[in-house]
């Protein structure tokens, strides 16, 4: 190729105006052995470009095909179980209908019976609370201590 032509191309190249085809021309030109001395540095440059393009990525990339287990679904399942639990609990509660008495006399007897039972238990509780009176007694004996304090106060006052 004519040297003049190459120099023109180089100028275009530096302005970034060459097409890929023209750049290929330049690369091929500088790949040959003999180039004019004043263009020697381009040889290194284009040589480097060419050589650099051969570098390859050789590392193995592990591509996993098995799907990662999705933990999102665990929470969904947990919520579902909870909801089911609430549902069954509320349905079991609704059928605690114990029935009712039709005859007023019988109803009165039943109420009286259960009230008597309640008051019986209540009295039992009251009698066990009666032990608290013992504390009261103890407290009264402690009151004598204040008497003692009064007398000491009088003594100290006399000292002053």
């Amino acid at each position: 190729m004519v040297l003049n032509n190459i120099e023109k191309l180089l100028e275009k190249y530096e302005n970034g105006e060459t097409s890929l085809k023209e750049e290929q021309l330049l690369k091929n030109y500088f790949a040959q052995e003999a180039v004019p001395p004043h263009l020697e540095m381009y040889k290194a440059m284009f040589g480097y470009f060419k050589v650099n393009k051969q570098e390859q990525f050789t590392k193995h990339v592990p591509l996993k095909t098995n799907k990662v287990f999705n933990y999102k679904w665990i929470s969904v399942a947990a919520v579902a179980v909870l909801m089911l639990g609430f549902y069954f609990k509320s349905t079991s509660k609704s059928n605690n209908d114990l029935g009712t008495y039709q005859d007023p006399q019988q109803a009165y007897n039943e109420v009286a019976k259960s009230l008597a039972m309640i008051s019986g238990h209540f009295n039992k509780g009251v009698s066990s609370v009666a032990y608290l009176n013992e504390y009261e007694k103890g407290y009264e004996t402690l009151n004598y201590l204040t008497e003692l304090e009064n007398s000491t106060r009088i003594i100290f006052k006399a000292n002053h």
Binding site: M41, K43, A44, M45, G47, Y48, V51, Q54, E55
Partner: peptide, 14 residues
């Protein structure tokens, strides 16, 4: 590759 690549010092300069 490096050996095959190493044309001269000037390539490294680039």
């Amino acid at each position: 590759l490096q050996k095959q690549v190493e044309l001269s010092d000037s390539v490294n300069w680039v």
